[in-house]
Nucleic acid binder design. Structure first.
Length: 107
DNA sequence: ACCGTGACGGCGA
DNA sequence: TTCGCCGCCACGG
């Protein structure tokens, strides 16, 4: 039973606003949603019922590390996430961190 | 209705 | 500069 709460729907909608080749952070999303907790955003993405429709792979932590993907904070899925972003033109640092200029801000 | 947990963030030591 | 702790909102059991 996919219990989609209004908050989650809001997160997905906003996330779809992120263009290809750019990434955003949980904090930025939270702020845009006027929410003080990025964890809430992460929780929503974790339970993301719209796998490919919602580009949850374009969301990284505020320290620009990959964060999580498909319910995992590390593992093969994360590698896939990185590959996906690379395929979209997002560049990474030597420490598996996205370049700051690739960050998308809701302005 | 209550408590514990979480794909996080920021500040302090 | 790196590691650790507390705080935040929302959700599941």
């Amino acid at each position: 039973m996919t219990t989609i709460t209004g908050f989650q729907q809001r997160v997905y909608k906003l996330l779809q606003k992120v263009p290809k080749g750019k990434v955003t952070t949980y904090a930025i999303l939270a702020k845009a949603l006027n929410c003080g907790s990025s964890q809430a955003v992460g929780g929503a993405l974790k339970r993301n019922p719209f796998a490919p429709e919602v580009p949850c792979h374009r969301v990284v932590k505020s320290d620009r590390s990959l964060g999580g993907f498909y319910g995992q904070i590390e593992g093969p899925q994360i590698e896939n996430k990185k590959a996906l972003l690379l395929a979209e033109g997002v560049k990474f640092d030597a420490d598996n961190k996205v370049m700051a200029n690739c960050l998308w801000q809701f302005k």
